[in-house]
Write a protein that binds this DNA or RNA. Structure first.
Length: 119
DNA sequence: AGGTTGACAAAGG
DNA sequence: GCCTTTGCCAACC
């Protein structure tokens, strides 16, 4: 590996988020558990995610099933994007994670990216 | 080289 | 079910 590990870490997160299909929602903890880091790092990586980079950052929310506060006022934009994908929000602004929760990437994707599906 | 910050999560009250 | 505290690890200053 010619690049530093930290670059690979962000790259892993972006690659994984990119695998989230439309109409599906993943939590920070879920992503963190797969890439092998804490949820906070995932949140920081999302904050550094460039718009239009092909990374559906909008499909990543907190474990409470709600859009967490983020710099600026892009929260409503994220909500609009998810609503466009068919995600329904509760009156409290929360989503039913039990229904739209992402099942995670396929085992072949994991193996292809150097993960260990058995673990 | 060291301290602070942060799009969080899990546990406790 | 909601709010507070604790732990977490990488990026940023």
């Amino acid at each position: 590996m010619t690049q530093t590990d930290r670059t690979r870490l962000f790259d892993r997160i972006y690659a994984l988020v990119r695998e989230i299909p439309p109409g599906r929602i993943a939590t920070y903890g879920q992503i963190a558990g797969i890439v092998g880091c804490t949820a906070r790092v995932v949140g920081y990586a999302m904050a550094a995610t460039p718009d239009g980079g092909g990374v559906p950052w909008q499909r990543v929310i907190n474990s409470r099933g709600e859009i967490s506060a983020r710099p600026g006022d892009g929260a409503s934009r994220q909500r609009a994007l998810l609503d466009r994908e068919g995600i329904r929000f509760s009156p409290a602004g929360r989503v039913a994670l039990d229904e739209v929760r992402w099942s995670g990437p396929g085992w072949e994707w994991l193996e292809r990216n150097g993960y260990d599906p058995g673990a």
